[in-house]
Amino acid sequence: MAPIVRISNLNKYFGRLHVLKNISLEVQPREVICLIGRSGSGKSTLLRCINFLEEPSGGSIEVDGLTVHSHERGNEHRQRIHEVRLKTGMVFQEFNLFPHMSVLQNVIEGPVTVKGMERSEAIALGEKNLDSVGMLFKRDEYPLRLSGGQKQRVAIARALTMQPRVMLFDEPTSALDPELIGEVLNVMKKVAKDGMTMIVVTHEMGFAREVADRVLVMAEGEIIEDANPTALFSAPKDPRTQALIERYRTGGR
């Protein structure tokens, strides 16, 4: 099967800092990938390069058959980036719901404004997704009135309503109170079970172990280990991976 995401020789500099070092990665359809690593290892940057929230300094990104080379410029290039964004949904650590819109408006904003979808169609789709994350009962509420976990579930529904091919999660539970993490992880498990391709930057080792098909360990801008969770957690090869896993084990997560 052809990979749905193919990252080739991706490089990223912040000023003089080389944060992503020649990264290549393939993700198969329906695969769930967890990216772990210490903060500053480049895992969030890698994720954000996939939908061009960060502009890659070199290399290419292919999503669902659409390739964007970092060295290209111009309108056609911008159009391809736009199409890649339509194929990817993103969930942020800080939720980033639109505070001036109700839950339902948040969810249908993308389809209506960006895709020009019929409002009634978007509402039907949005309500279906809100229902699947268990947030339909708050459809007319404003984000300020929601808990962190509820906000994140709405954010997931918002991304899903764009009907993406790949979902990107950037530390989706890191801003949550411990007791709210479970409800978000459960929703993510459900999304994975429905067959969505997912790339998840996370510190939740339990989630990685249980849900991921592959776990990627990043350190200093490189992928230092790429294995299935059972192999990785029982027999980590790189000493940095060992240290990372040990740290979480003693940290209780």
Binding site: N51, L53, H82, R85, F92, V114, A159
Partner: peptide
């Protein structure tokens, strides 16, 4: 916040749509 702009961009909004909406 910068996150608002990023969320809009990730949804595929153009800079103009992001500003307006």
């Amino acid at each position: 916040g910068k996150g608002q702009r990023e969320a809009a961009t990730a949804l595929g909004m153009t800079p103009l749509q992001t500003m307006r909406r």
